[in-house]
Design a protein around this nucleic acid. Sequence first.
DNA 1: AATGAATGAGTCTTCATTCAT
DNA 2: AATGAATGAAGACTCATTCAT
Lengths: 198, 198, 198, 198
Amino acid sequence: METMIDRKPTDRRKQVLEAASRSFAAFGYKATTMDQVAKAAGVGKGTIYTFFANKEELFEQIVKDLIAELKAVAERTLDPALPFSDNLLGILQQVLAYRDRHGLVVKLSQEVKEFGTPMAKGGLEAVERSIVDYIAGHVSDAIAKGEVRRSDPALTAYMMLKMYLALTAEGDHLHEPLDAEQVLAHFRFYCLEGLAVV
Amino acid sequence: METMIDRKPTDRRKQVLEAASRSFAAFGYKATTMDQVAKAAGVGKGTIYTFFANKEELFEQIVKDLIAELKAVAERTLDPALPFSDNLLGILQQVLAYRDRHGLVVKLSQEVKEFGTPMAKGGLEAVERSIVDYIAGHVSDAIAKGEVRRSDPALTAYMMLKMYLALTAEGDHLHEPLDAEQVLAHFRFYCLEGLAVV
Amino acid sequence: METMIDRKPTDRRKQVLEAASRSFAAFGYKATTMDQVAKAAGVGKGTIYTFFANKEELFEQIVKDLIAELKAVAERTLDPALPFSDNLLGILQQVLAYRDRHGLVVKLSQEVKEFGTPMAKGGLEAVERSIVDYIAGHVSDAIAKGEVRRSDPALTAYMMLKMYLALTAEGDHLHEPLDAEQVLAHFRFYCLEGLAVV
Amino acid sequence: METMIDRKPTDRRKQVLEAASRSFAAFGYKATTMDQVAKAAGVGKGTIYTFFANKEELFEQIVKDLIAELKAVAERTLDPALPFSDNLLGILQQVLAYRDRHGLVVKLSQEVKEFGTPMAKGGLEAVERSIVDYIAGHVSDAIAKGEVRRSDPALTAYMMLKMYLALTAEGDHLHEPLDAEQVLAHFRFYCLEGLAVV
DNA sequence: AATGAATGAGTCTTCATTCAT
DNA sequence: AATGAATGAAGACTCATTCAT
């Protein structure tokens, strides 16, 4: 009688993660209820708690997975033979392909300082810090190679992330959603070239 | 004997606004409880409701005040005789002076997309939209005068705001807090000049 | 400078009683707020508390006054020379003239069992009991004189009150509001004559 | 070991309805707190909300059930072959059998006009209107058949209900509680025969 | 004496978490 | 192992009452 549905047992964990990911992205952390997640995942509410001790842990797992995935994408794309800006834009291009899947989560993690005490203050910044550290390493190299102007690599990496997030943000209706190509072009314009007339 | 406390009776509304402002900035909208605000303001819970019909209205008032204040600062500082970048940096400089008072709120309003149905959908974006519109107008002028490179004024204004907020953000411990002078210098560097070696 | 309003100081207590009376009748006990009463009476909220220790006491006073007023009306109208049914209808006629002023309160006192523990359980029934006792006395006499059929005077009095209240009730939209004359006619029909075909 | 408690899981909804019914009858709508109901029903407060969206809906359900039950009783008892007064008294007799179970609720619905805006204005009168309409239909027939004196059927039905409620009321300690037989006898006396000596 | 701003106990309602099945 | 009915702590909001002016 289980044959009718016939899901491999290990499916359930992934289903939960994906449903939760979508919910967090769409409604935010607090506004997402465990009922919602269970319903969306097509599992019982109790099932979630067999995988994750609580809501917070579920959220953290999503964030952790995201970091790993982003790193993997970056590593896969990076070509040491190419100049920094090519690599940077190349990676952005790859990441943008995933935008539908986790772009919103990136945005969420950026936007949500919205957490009670339980959700450890800096906990969320794990994502950003991890990304920034990663980029900063490459910025350092690029500076050393004279490929970009001299600057604080950490701060520059941070500004890059913010600009990327600003351009890809779909939530605020402050600007039209940009397609991948536009994001790349504008990123190059604002981040690399600058506004000043030469 | 009253001299120790000695608050003008009309203080209370302001006390509430300031305590709420701090709380919203520190914990976000949802995570801020009215009890908290009352305690922080040193007033009874009911007192808040004599001034504001509900939590949402309290929040909106803070946002509204902020917009007004920012506009006032900008108008006061703007000198049509000066070139765009000077005005831009001048205004930033002025606004930065207020950072302690409401910088956090700016950040909050940017970060909190975290609202259920009650908090009118785009309602919060009022702040950003208002600021962006304002800047966009001046960007337009600057482009017309050839003071900056040709670009979509709205998008450029939006990116400027995001960069400014990124640099002044104190919440994320992703970079050391910068003092006013540093913010200005970095803003010039990242926003106007760009990273690319010339 | 007080001359502009120029109310005799003793006015205030009566103003409060009347405003409260109207409010209780219109909205019920719980749904009537002290703010409402104060506003309607044109006095400060605190003023109410100089006359009445609390909301309950205010209500009780209204009830007490009402009883007294009803008794006075009855006494004034009663003519021992007339037969019972004439007196009964005569008194009803008098009381009906006051309907605008306190008819609603009578109804309220009947309808509102709606009281927390504070409002002593049977406390409200004071009105009804007082009225019933009064009528019962006269029913007794009437029975003794053979003017009405033999019955339990208390129960008959009680039923009379209920019928009267049912006919004068304006709150339920179960029947069209009846004018004084109609009330009298119907009271005679239902209470004295009965439905049965003879 | 479970035998002592041994409740079928589905019991809970009914437990809540019954506890609420008792509480509403005893204390009224406003004075009944959800905590009280939960405690009285022996369930958690949240449990109530799994069955009823809110307090108002809980109340409405009780009222609705009551109407349905009363109608069912009436239909079951009605015998078109019998004269009106027999049917009327027969139905009363049946309804009286229910008195112990929810007679108080009937009374409540009659007494509580005590509702702010939330509780839909005439919403509560649904019970009475429903009952009155039902009786009125039968009164019409009875008049047509010459079984009772000519009168406005709606008003007569309304008066009958009020008299019935007055006689069965247990809340007011204005008269001794009557047993079923007494209620019937008195109803016949006051409603059908009238007080006047023939 | 009169006021009304201030108060906080008490309400309804939500939702993360548990546990019997 | 999976479930979802049950729970109660916590939050927004109301309003009778107090008290400084």
